[in-house]
Amino acid sequence: MARSNEPPFWLVWSERGGPPMKQHRSAADAEREASRLATENPGVSFVVLQPIARVTKRAVEVERFDLDTVPF
């Protein structure tokens, strides 16, 4: 699988909350946000995550050939 040229990002996630809503451009920024959320929500854990892969389903591609130029 090819590597992406996009810059890395981090997410903050908690089992008790909804899905992560913001991409943080550094681990330190994500940790600060996790600390802020933990301070506002005593007893709730927040986890800093970094994606390791992206999976995308692509549509089927059809390539048509010019039958007048086929060499057989």
Rank of each mutant, 00 (worst) to 15 (best):
M1N: 11
A2E: 12
R3Y: 13
P7I: 09
P8L: 12
P8S: 12
P8I: 04
V12C: 11
V12H: 08
W13R: 11
W13E: 14
S14E: 01
E15P: 15
R16V: 08
G18I: 04
G18A: 12
G18Q: 10
G18P: 13
G18T: 13
P19T: 07
P19G: 14
K22D: 13
Q23F: 04
Q23Y: 09
H24Q: 02
H24W: 07
S26M: 09
A27V: 03
A28Q: 13
D29S: 15
D29I: 07
A30K: 02
E31D: 05
R32M: 01
R32D: 01
E33C: 13
E33L: 06
E33G: 03
A34M: 01
S35R: 12
A38D: 03
A38R: 08
T39H: 04
E40S: 14
P42K: 03
G43H: 00
G43W: 01
V44L: 04
V44I: 14
V44D: 02
V44N: 02
F46D: 00
L49S: 03
Q50N: 04
Q50D: 00
Q50A: 10
P51W: 09
I52M: 05
I52D: 12
I52K: 06
A53M: 09
T56M: 08
T56V: 14
T56N: 03
K57M: 12
R58Q: 13
R58E: 13
A59T: 08
A59I: 03
V60S: 09
V62R: 10
V62W: 06
V62Y: 11
E63S: 08
E63A: 09
R64E: 11
R64N: 03
F65Y: 13
D66S: 10
D66R: 05
L67H: 06
D68H: 06
F72Q: 07
F72R: 04
